[in-house]
Design a binder for these strands. Structure first.
Length: 570
RNA sequence: CGGUGAUUAGCGCAGCUUGGUAGCGCACUUGGUUUGGGUCCAAGGGGUCGCAAGUUCGAAUCUUGCAUCACCGACCA
C-alpha cells in the first residue's frame, strides 16, 4: 500500500473525549472514528487489525472442531419470550418494531437463535456433540459505554455454543474450548490469565474468564503468588484465618464516642487498626409467607469490604441485595447506621470468617454516639452464624492453599460457561437417546470480545511514540520509508524496487511515498506501530545499505539492500 | 438511572464575569523555503457559537427547557 493512496488519518493531538491510552492511540493512529456513543467506524488500518484477530480466532475455533455459522443480528422477540429473557434481560436489550409492528431485538448474544436452530435440525443423539460459532456484531445498550471500543455498545464478538447429551460430554468440549482459548491468546501475543469466574446473569455451573492484564482493566483479579490460581475477586473465597481465635483479655466497656461514625473515625478515636474493629451493615432478608421482609445484620472487619455476590447467595438475604433504609435501621436497632454492633442484636446476624476470628474488638453499641471496646464473641455477642461474605484483599491466604493473594487489574476478553439445560429446556431442545427416549440437551457457551482484544492489545503494548503491535496483529509487517525521495532519484528507485519485491513476496508492506519530511513519516509509522521500518536515504546508499529499525526493541542496524528479503524468511 | 462537568472551524482551546465586527494553535489549500526526527515565511479557505424558546434596539455571552458527549457509581465480550 502506498500512503499517497491510503487513508492514513493520523492525528497529532489527542481528542479530549479519549480517556484511556488505547482509545487515544486508536484515534490518533487512525484506527477508528466515533459515530455515536459506543459506536465506531473502523478505518482501513483498524479494520486490518480487527480482521487479523478475527482470523486467529476463526482458525483456532475450527481447529478445535467448532463449525462457523452466521446468525442474524436482528432477532424476533418470540424467541426471547420463549427463553424468558424478554422479561429478564432489561433495558440493555435494544427492542425495535418493524413496519408491521412486530417486535424484534438487536442481538446482544445468540443463545435463543442457536438453540432454536439445533432444536429444529437435530433429532438424534448420533448427531451430537455439536459445537458452532460465529463472528458477528453484537449490540448491547450499555448504561455507560466508555474507553472507546473497549466497552462499546456495538462490538464484534466471537460466540460459540455447544450441545451435549450429558455433563461428561460438555466437560470435554469445555476443556477443548479452554485449550483453544489459550492457543488464541498465545498466538495474539498477549499477557493473559484464565480466571475462575462468577457465572453471572447467564446462569450455569462452571465458568472461566480470560483476562488480559493491564492497569486500565475494569476487573480485579486475585492471584496466588505461588500457584497458577487466579479468580475474579468477586468469586475468590476468603478463607478463615488460621488457628483458633485468640482468648479474650479485656472486659466489655461502653465508651462515649460523640461524632464517631465511620470506621476511620473509630480507628482514630480508639487509636487502633481498622482490623480490630467491625462494621455492621443491615440489609433486607427474605420475606416469609406471613411476614414482611426482616432486617439481617452483616458483620465484617473494619478494613474489609462486603462482597455483594457472596451475600446474595446466602439463603437469609433477599436478592437483589438491598440495604436497609435509615428509618428501618432506626426501627430495628434504635440508633443511626454509624453506631450499630452485633452485641445484643435480636435479628439474624451473619459474621464474616475474619470478623469472627477477632478478640477484644471494637464495635457500635446500638446507641447513638456509643461504642463497645473489648468485645468478644460468644461472651458478649451471641446467636450469630459465620460465612464468607467479604472480598479478598492482598495478602490473604490463597483459596488454593498455596501462597498469598495478589490483586491485579484485568480486561475481560473471553468467557466460557457451562450453561446446562437452561435454554434447551425453555426452548424444548432435545434429541432421542439410544434408548429411544427424549432427552433435553446440555449446553456450553464461549465468547471472545474480538474488538475489545484490539484495545486490550494496545493497552499492553505501547510507548510514548504510539502502538507497538504484537507481530501477529500488526496492520502492516513493514514500512518502507524513503528520505527525501523527491530530490533523490536513486532513493526513489531503491524504495520503489524494494516495495515491489516485498509486495511480490506477499509481505504486507506500506510504502510512505508522501512528500513529507522524515520526522513526519517516522512519527506516523511509530504511532501506527508497524513492527519494522526500512529507512532508505542517500547516507547509506553509497554502501548499498539501508537502515532497519525495529519498533518493538528500538534497535537500528544497517543492512545490505540485497539482504532485505532475508528479514522475512521465517 | 443517580451524581459531576462539557458543547464555539476537522482536532485542541480562548472569548461569556461586564451583551455591540467570532478568535488562537494544529490540520487543510497555494507559493516559496527546508530535507535522517512533527522546518520556517507568506497568502488563503472553512463557523446558522448543540437545539428551541424567552429577555433586549442588539445574545456565543443573560434566563428557561431540551438534546448530545464525557467523567464517577450499579452491568458485561
Amino acid at each position: 500500500m502506498r500512503t499517497s493512496q491510503y487513508l492514513l488519518s493520523t492525528l497529532k493531538e489527542t481528542p479530549a473525549s479519549a480517556e484511556v491510552i488505547s482509545h487515544q492511540l486508536m484515534l490518533r493512529a487512525g484506527l477508528v472514528r466515533n459515530v455515536a456513543s459506543g459506536m465506531y467506524t473502523w478505518l482501513p488500518t483498524g479494520l486490518k487489525v480487527l480482521r487479523k484477530v478475527e482470523n486467529i480466532v476463526r482458525e483456532e475455533m475450527e481447529r478445535a472442531g467448532s463449525l462457523e455459522v452466521l446468525m442474524p443480528m436482528v432477532q424476533p422477540a418470540d424467541l426471547w419470550e420463549e427463553s424468558g429473557r424478554w422479561e429478564d434481560y432489561g433495558p440493555e436489550l435494544l427492542r425495535l418494531k418493524d413496519r408491521h409492528n412486530r417486535s424484534f431485538v438487536l442481538g446482544p448474544t445468540h443463545e435463543e437463535v442457536i438453540t432454536k436452530l439445533v432444536s429444529n435440525e437435530i433429532s438424534s443423539y448420533k448427531q451430537l456433540p455439536l459445537n458452532m460459532f460465529q463472528i458477528q456484531t453484537k449490540f448491547r445498550d450499555e448504561i455507560r459505554p466508555r474507553f472507546g471500543v473497549m466497552r462499546g455498545r456495538e462490538f464484534l464478538m466471537k460466540d460459540a455454543y455447544s450441545f451435549h447429551l450429558g455433563a461428561d460430554c460438555l466437560d470435554k468440549t469445555y476443556q477443548a474450548m479452554f485449550d483453544a482459548y489459550c492457543r488464541i491468546f498465545d498466538r495474539l501475543g498477549l499477557d493473559y490469565r484464565p480466571v475462575i469466574a462468577d457465572t453471572g446473569s447467564i446462569g450455569g455451573d462452571a465458568s472461566h474468564e480470560f483476562h488480559v492484564l493491564a492497569d486500565s482493566g475494569e476487573d480485579d483479579i486475585a492471584f496466588s503468588d505461588v500457584s497458577d490460581f487466579a479468580a475474579n475477586v468477586e468469586k475468590a473465597e476468603a478463607l478463615a484465618p488460621k488457628g483458633t481465635r485468640p482468648e479474650a483479655t479485656q472486659t466489655l466497656a461502653e465508651v462515649s464516642t460523640p461524632n464517631v461514625r465511620t470506621i476511620d473515625d473509630v480507628a482514630a478515636f480508639f487509636k487502633v487498626d481498622a482490623a480490630n474493629t467491625v462494621k455492621t451493615l443491615l440489609v433486607m432478608g427474605v420475606a416469609s409467607a406471613d411476614n414482611e421482609a426482616p432486617v439481617v445484620a452483616l458483620v465484617v472487619r473494619g478494613d474489609h469490604q462486603l462482597n455483594e455476590i457472596k451475600v446474595e447467595n446466602l439463603a437469609q438475604v433477599a436478592t437483589p441485595l438491598t440495604f436497609a433504609t435509615d428509618e428501618q435501621i432506626l426501627a430495628t436497632v434504635n440508633c443511626n447506621a454509624g453506631s450499630i454492633g452485633p452485641v445484643g442484636l435480636n435479628i439474624d446476624v451473619i459474621v464474616d470468617r475474619s470478623a469472627a476470628h477477632l478478640a477484644d474488638f471494637i464495635c457500635g453499641a446500638n446507641k447513638n454516639d456509643v461504642h463497645f471496646s473489648g468485645v468478644n464473641w460468644d461472651r458478649d455477642a451471641t446467636n450469630y452464624s459465620v460465612e464468607d461474605i467479604r472480598n479478598v484483599v492482598e495478602g490473604d491466604p490463597s483459596p488454593c492453599g498455596e501462597g498469598n493473594i495478589v490483586i491485579k487489574r484485568g480486561i475481560e476478553v473471553g468467557h466460557i460457561f457451562q450453561l446446562g439445560e437452561k435454554y434447551a429446556q425453555a426452548m424444548k431442545c432435545g434429541v432421542l437417546t439410544e434408548a429411544g427416549k427424549n432427552q433435553t440437551l446440555t449446553m456450553g457457551c464461549y465468547g471472545i470480545g474480538v474488538s475489545r482484544i484490539v484495545a486490550a492489545a494496545i493497552e499492553q503494548n505501547h510507548d510514548k511514540y504510539g502502538i507497538k503491535w504484537p507481530e501477529a496483529i500488526a496492520p502492516y509487517q513493514v514500512a518502507v520509508v524513503p528520505m527525501n525521495m523527491a530530490k533523490s532519484a536513486r532513493v526513489k528507485e531503491t524504495a520503489e524496487t524494494l516495495y515491489e519485491q516485498l509486495q511480490a513476496a506477499g509481505i504486507e508492506v506500506i510504502f510512505d511515498d508522501r512528500k513529507e519530511r522524515p520526522g513526519v513519516m517516522f512519527a506516523d509509522h511509530e504511532l501506527m506501530g508497524t513492527p519494522l521500518l526500512l529507512v532508505i536515504g542517500e547516507r547509506n546508499l553509497d554502501n548499498q545499505e539501508i537502515e532497519v529499525k525495529n519498533r518493538i526493541t528500538g534497535e537500528k542496524s544497517l543492512l545490505a539492500i540485497s539482504d532485505v528479503m532475508s528479514l522475512f524468511n521465517s
